[in-house]
Write a protein that binds this DNA or RNA. Structure first.
Lengths: 266, 266
DNA sequence: CGCGACCTTGAGTAGGCTCAATGCCGGTGG
DNA sequence: CCACCGGCATTGAGCCTACTCAAGGTCGCG
């Protein structure tokens, strides 16, 4: 009865990344590699000092481990230092919808500060390193650092904006359009944070099942659709790395507004 | 070629609500009718005073007028005082995806403070009254009122959470499930802000085309699906007002987590 | 070598889409 | 007063996109 059930097997690693394992600071905030990227704004000395006190440690998460679990509550907030993850929701019968991907620089768990329990899960796609913050610190951040709290809001607004795009895709685009759009989106995000050697190459450890669950398609149909894109030499996909061979064509297929995409973020 | 084109005619009223027409305060913030509702937290005297200076006036918008236009930029932020609206995105060929509905108490236009241009449009469903704020005021708000800025973030996180649910629906639920879920969601939201005489009755001036564009379905199929729900006496729908006749059944159809739904907001 | 994780491909089905008409108001103008 | 029109809901018919079921195939690993 339910359409498009995600017929995937049980997660191989139900292991949960435990913040108690967090190591006490390894990358000092001053030399945070993320701060070099131009998508991020520069902190003032004061802000930097505060962030150092706000950060309680680092968490290393293995690929496949859970950062958040829907229905559970979490006392922590994270920032992605390195690695990738995805945020998703499940239906009781196992159908899965991936909501978005988490890249370095993303702020995770804000919703938990607002709801009792998490309304979504997050699973690491690769080994990750995360900065750990205490929820209570967030309130202190708002009280003492308007700039930073504005940033938090900025981040929230931006991720809402990405969700909007995703919803438009899933609701109104055809399978090819969705695939094309997703690939462009991922390429853009990866490029922003310097994850890709070239703006056209993206190394991201996802399976076609992930793509299917992102786009609201079945695994089989996703496979065929991607196959079509590959046969037409629009993209290439091998070993968890895909390459955009013909960006114009891909953008055309996606109905992607290029201008909109390359606007600087901050 | 494009599936599920929204074959609707051009909007009857391309008129844009112009903030220049905004009347200089009519409802004083002290007696804002919204503050009575228990979903909203109580302001301190200081916060109340600030909000009064932040608010620059009121805007009355006719049903059908545009509050925001995708691609345009706006110098204003709004809070819905009364009336309803919906937020949507269009594809170049006219397909439309409705992202969410805007209820009294909602904060509109935050994304514009973060992006250059709006990435979505908002259209009034009924005649509305909105409180108007200047964007610059927002920065001042963050600087001087941690509590209020936290609220803004709270609101943003909550609307992101609603988008998550919506994305799950559109991506992974069947047509009946989507309809059922949407109706429950609307009923809940309407009830929260006291829009409904009974928690089971919702007066909301939308057409089936709106529902279709919300759920990522075609108009015809939406009609049939709703028809099915009505034949089974699960809901009733007449004259822009629908009534939930059998909430248990509806929730069951939706796979809706009731517990999750009735949790108090603040 | 066997097993598990993933990708591919074929075949048949069905949920949802498009096209096209019809019916039902409520408003408007002759 | 009535004819007409526009906006909306409804229904029938036929089609097609995307789904399900079911095999393989490949590769890496214990």
């Amino acid at each position: 009865m339910p359409p498009s059930r995600s017929n995937r097997t049980a997660p191989k690693k139900p292991s949960t990344a435990d913040p108690k394992d967090a190591v006490r600071r390894q990358v000092p905030c001053e030399s945070c590699p993320l701060r070099k990227r131009k998508v991020f704004r520069r902190f003032t000395a004061d802000e930097l000092a505060f962030v150092k006190t706000f950060k309680t440690g680092e968490l290393t998460a293995e690929a496949g481990s859970m950062l958040f679990l829907e229905g559970a509550s979490s006392a922590h907030l994270y920032t992605v230092l390195s690695g990738l993850a995805f945020r998703y929701k499940l239906l009781p019968d196992g159908r899965r919808q991936i909501l978005n991907y988490c890249f370095p620089g993303d702020f995770l768990g804000l919703q938990g500060s607002v709801m009792e329990e998490m309304q979504h899960s997050i699973e690491a796609l690769s080994d990750m390193v995360l900065c750990v913050f205490q929820r209570e610190g967030l309130w202190r951040l708002f009280e003492t650092h308007a700039g930073l709290s504005f940033d938090v809001t900025w981040l929230a607004a931006r991720s809402e904006q990405i969700l909007d795009q995703q919803l438009l895709s899933v609701g109104r685009r055809s399978a090819v359009e969705r695939c094309a759009h997703l690939l462009l989106h991922l390429a853009q995000r990866a490029d922003e944070v310097g994850l890709s050697s070239s703006p056209n190459k993206v190394r991201i450890p996802i399976t076609q099942q992930h793509i299917a669950d992102t786009l609201g398609l079945s695994l089989v149909h996703t496979n065929r659709t991607l196959g079509q894109l590959m046969r037409n030499r629009v993209v290439r996909w091998k070993e968890h790395e895909f390459e955009i061979l013909n960006r114009e064509r891909l953008a055309e297929l996606a109905g992607y507004d290029i201008d909109l995409a390359v606007r600087p973020l901050l």
